[in-house]
Amino acid sequence: MEKYAIKHLQELEAEAIYVIREVAAQFERPVLLFSGGKDSIVMFYLARKAFWPAKVPFPLMHIDTGHNFPETLEFRDNLMNETGAQLVVALVQDTIDKGKVVEEKGYSASRNMLQTVTLLDAIEENKFDAALGGGRRDEEKARAKERFFSHRDEFGQWDPKNQRPELWQIFNGKKNMGEHFRVFPLSNWTEMDVWQYIYLEKIDIPKLYFTHEREVFYRDGSWLATAPFMKLRPNEKAEVRKVRCRTIGDVTNTGVTLSEANTLEDIIQEVAATRTTERGGRADDKRSESAMEDRKREGYF
C-alpha cells in the first residue's frame, strides 16, 4: 500500500496557502503588508504559489518609516519588477508632516510607534478590508493568542478578550462597515520553519541576512547599526564588526547579531544553536513586559 504523509513544512505551507486563498475569496480589497523582511518575502512567495498561474489578486503595501537599510529598498524594488506585483508605499514622514503624530526625541527615538497611525490611515484611505501580515505566534506571548483572522474595530483596535473562536478550517471574515481584519497565514510557523522553508524552496532574501561588515554600536544589550538619523550617547562608540540581521525592521530598533553565517545552512545552524529569541534584539519589545500587547491593542501589525 502506498504511504501518504506530508512533512511539517508542507503542512504549514498548505495551511498558509489555504488561509491566503480564503482571504482572496472572503474580502473585497485585501492587501499584503510587505516590509522587505524574510517573513513578508515568504508570505509573498506563498501568495504567488496560491494563485499560480494567475497573478496575486491583491496589492502589497510597505509602511515606510524612512529609516530603512538601503539594501531592503533595493531588494523590494527588484522583486516588484520581476514579479509585476503592485506596490503601495505609505510614508510615516507624511503622517508626521500632516501633524498627526509627533516624532520622538532623544537617543532611543524611534518611529516604530508612529507607524501604527500611518498603517491605519493607509488602510482607511485605500479602503482595504483585510491586511495580510507575516506575524507568527512564536514571536511574542501576546501574539501567541492571536487568531489567523484577527478582527479589528473601526479604530483598528484588537480586543484580545473578545476574539472569535476559530474551529477546524473555518475562518469567519464577516464584519461591519469600517471594520477590517488582520490575517496571519504564518501563525503556526516558528523562526526555524521560516528559515527551513526559505532553504527548501530556494527563496531569494536580502543580503543583510548574511554576514557582512557594518558600522555598529552597543546599546542596552544589543548591537545596533549606525545611520545618519541615529544619535550615539557620549559613552557609545561606533566600530566595524562582522554582523548579520536576524530580523529586518526599522534601523532604529533592529538589533544585529555578531555572526559569520554566510549561507542558509550556516543560518539554520546558528538559529538552532541560538539561545535568545528573534525579538530579543528588538528595543521596541523591551519597553515593558506588555509592550507588544499594548501596541497590538492600538492597531499595530
Partner: peptide, 26 residues
C-alpha cells in the same frame, strides 16, 4: 500566560499556542 490580565490574575483566559520541536517532530 501571555496576556496582562492573565498574569495579574494567574489564570489562562484564552487558547494560547506554543511551539517546540524535537529531532523527530514539530
Amino acid at each position: 500566560d501571555g496576556l496582562r490580565s492573565e498574569r495579574e490574575q494567574g489564570i489562562t483566559i484564552d487558547v494560547a499556542y506554543r511551539y517546540f520541536a524535537t529531532p523527530k517532530r514539530k
